[in-house]
Design a protein around this nucleic acid. Structure first.
Lengths: 213, 213
DNA sequence: CGCCTGAAAAGTGTATACAGTATACACGTG
DNA sequence: CACGTGTATACTGTATACACTTTTCAGGCG
């Protein structure tokens, strides 16, 4: 039930049902889920450590507010991690892992542009598989922690995937991995993440102000 | 009281009172601290997310066991983060921050070699200040998360600080920061962390087997 | 009309109770 | 003598109760 509360809250936040800054009441959420406060509390604390909610002592939980400055910081760290992941993957990836990556890019091409959630899911899988191919589980863990925070940002930035450049960059990364060119893979991954950061920040500037979901 | 339970457990684990693999009983710990199970549970879950304890569903909590392979992974990621931190610090550090760093190195020289805990504390402060001088709070957060796991390793590796090379490497980093040479700072920080990793792994091999603290 | 005050409502933090489950140990069986 | 089974104990996960704090809102005062 803790897991259920966690997943429900996470989904509510990422899908935009709960806007940033919204207060989350333990009794309220517990009743709406038909469970007691205990698992709700534990779910909130987990989300707090993941950076999706803010927990002030004695004053309850709120959905976290993220500033553009913070988005920039997170993407810069992600670029660092993903570049290293790509470098290691070029050295350590197995044949099966390379095929799985290739398969995801083919799947992305097959998905119609209007099915945004599906695109996002496969895109996410591609990057996760890339990091796992590094064979450094600590790197993967840190990366996933960072991404759960990033999800907050992308929630309302729909339609920005499948930019023309994105597809080309994905293939550049894969090609470098297949040719075992570590430095080239790192550069390509870094460029991809930083390019995406600019797209996100631009879209945010157009549609919002100092903060958003 | 959650904080008290958290700090008590953390200290017990890092000081070696609780050895890796030891089962931690919620009722037992609650009684020994004179509090109820609720805050104990919450502390255990926090420690679980920080990587100090392992939490198997329905089967309670154990102090986590770390393998040399994992130590290598963690230090490699730390080297990556700290190199980036040093690079950014060379660009962004304020005068006051540079002075604080210098002060820590002077303090390290003043501490007698036998006061190991004090040395470790100041050494920790130096590295934390270095990362904070990067002015990227996300980078700092990820770094601190990683280090709390590392603390497990160093707990029983006393006497390995103040290796002759350590002092020199610290000063190399600081010098690069003062001269605003970003790439040199990154290289120096990376070399320092990786060197330290080798020292730790060597010490572990001498005194242990496949796993320790 | 605005601001301060104070009481009521809601909420957080901790303790405790209870149901379901894993673990350990002893006994019986092959 | 080894192994499986059954029972008793201990523990985890969830629910509920209670004290204390924060928030809210209405009424009175300046």
């Amino acid at each position: 039930m803790r897991e259920a509360a966690y997943l429900h809250l996470r989904e509510s936040i990422l899908s935009g049902i709960l806007l940033p800054g919204t207060r989350i009441s333990e009794p309220g959420l517990a009743e709406s889920l038909g469970i007691s406060r205990t698992p709700v509390r534990e779910a909130l604390q987990r989300l707090s450590q993941e950076g999706l909610v803010e927990l002030s002592p004695g004053r309850g939980a709120r959905v976290r507010v993220i500033t553009p400055q913070e988005v920039r910081e997170v993407y810069e760290v992600r670029a660092l991690l993903e570049a290293e992941g790509a470098r290691l993957a070029a050295l350590n990836a197995t044949g099966a892992e390379l095929e799985a990556l290739e398969e995801r890019l083919e799947a992305l091409d097959r998905i119609p542009a209007e099915q945004y959630p599906e695109q996002m899911r496969v895109d996410f899988e591609f990057h996760s598989l890339l990091m796992e191919a590094s064979h450094n589980r600590t790197l993967v863990r840190v990366y996933q922690d960072l991404r759960s925070g990033l999800a907050l940002v992308r929630a309302h930035q729909q339609t920005l995937s499948q930019h023309p450049k994105t597809r080309e960059q994905h293939h550049q990364i894969l090609k470098a991995l297949q040719q075992r060119e570590a430095e080239q893979a790192a550069r390509a991954a870094r460029a991809h993440v930083l390019y995406f950061m600019e797209v996100v920040l631009e879209a945010a500037q157009r549609q919002g102000g100092q903060q958003w979901t």
